[in-house]
Simulated assay, not measured.
Amino acid sequence: MRHALTQSLPNVTIIDAASFDEAKVVVDRLGTADLVILDLNMPGMNGFTGLAAMRAAHPLVPVAMVSATTDETVMRRAIEFGAAGFIPKSAPLETIAEAIGQILEGQVWLPPAAVYGGTEAGTSRQEIAKRLRELTPQQLKVLSMMSQGLLNKQIAFELTVGEATVKAHVTAILKKLGVHSRTQAVIAARLLDMKTAE
């Protein structure tokens, strides 16, 4: 990870921490950081509790998770808990560098397989973008509001439509994107930093 960072960011300053508590003390002392990288299995993490605690204490600091796991469910859960990315340790050096670069630019990064699961593990970002382009303007608005965490009832109120209409849009969005849950749809949108024209 250090090698990937120094290779992609020549003037980077890296501060190591041996545990979550130590990492939090460092960020608390600095007041901010361009990026915090947490290992899912580092001492003190307690699953995603550490991630949630870091996000609560420093909501403006992007947090990337790294782990030896390639479990797609775990990766998606990390994004749900506020991670800006999940980088498998087994990823090639150039992929790690690309992931860090995108996270620093404000995007969310996940291996495409983590969005679509094992049945479509080869799905590329280009394919995700193609599927997003198939959404109607109204479906894009609904997806954008889903990305903001709004419930169907809230989306219906914002768009002045019935809740049944929103449910129909959500069903169509999931079908067009080839995903099985709202979370997967939101991750697909965030992966491409989806912008919806107002």
Results as ranks from 00 to 15, higher is better:
A164P: 04
R133W: 02
T6M: 12
P137W: 09
A114W: 11
A99R: 03
N46T: 10
H169F: 14
A114Y: 10
L151R: 15
S67L: 01
H58G: 03
A57Q: 09
I155K: 04
E163G: 00
T69W: 01
E98I: 03
T6Y: 07
S181D: 14
P92F: 05
G31Q: 08
W109C: 01
I128F: 00
E98T: 13
L60P: 00
S8Q: 14
N46E: 14
S124L: 06
L35V: 06
A4W: 01
T183P: 02
K141V: 06
I15F: 07
K141E: 13
A168I: 02
L93A: 14
G118K: 09
R182P: 03
A189C: 09
I187S: 12
G118R: 09
V186G: 01
F157E: 13
I155E: 03
R133K: 12
F81I: 01
Q139Y: 05
L135H: 07
A172V: 07
E134I: 02
H169S: 12
L110P: 05
I155Q: 11
A91V: 02
M65Y: 10
T136Q: 05
I96Y: 00
Q102C: 04
A172W: 03
V66G: 00
V12P: 10
A91Q: 01
L104N: 06
Q126P: 01
L150W: 10
A53E: 15
Q139I: 08
S19Q: 06
G44S: 06
S90M: 05
V108C: 08
W109F: 13
F81A: 08
M42W: 03
G118S: 13
A52Y: 00
E127A: 13
E94C: 11
Q138C: 00
R190M: 14
G162I: 01
H3T: 14
E72M: 11
T160K: 15
A113Q: 03
L140E: 11
I173G: 08
Y116M: 11
K89L: 13
A99T: 04
L40N: 05
G118M: 07
L192I: 04
T165F: 02
V74L: 15
A91T: 09
W109S: 00
V25P: 03
F48L: 15
G44A: 14
L151F: 09
P10I: 05
L132G: 00
P112T: 12
M42L: 12
T160W: 08
G178Q: 07
A188F: 03
A197C: 05
G82T: 05
T196N: 09
I87E: 07
S144K: 11
D28M: 09
M146G: 06
A68M: 13
T6C: 10
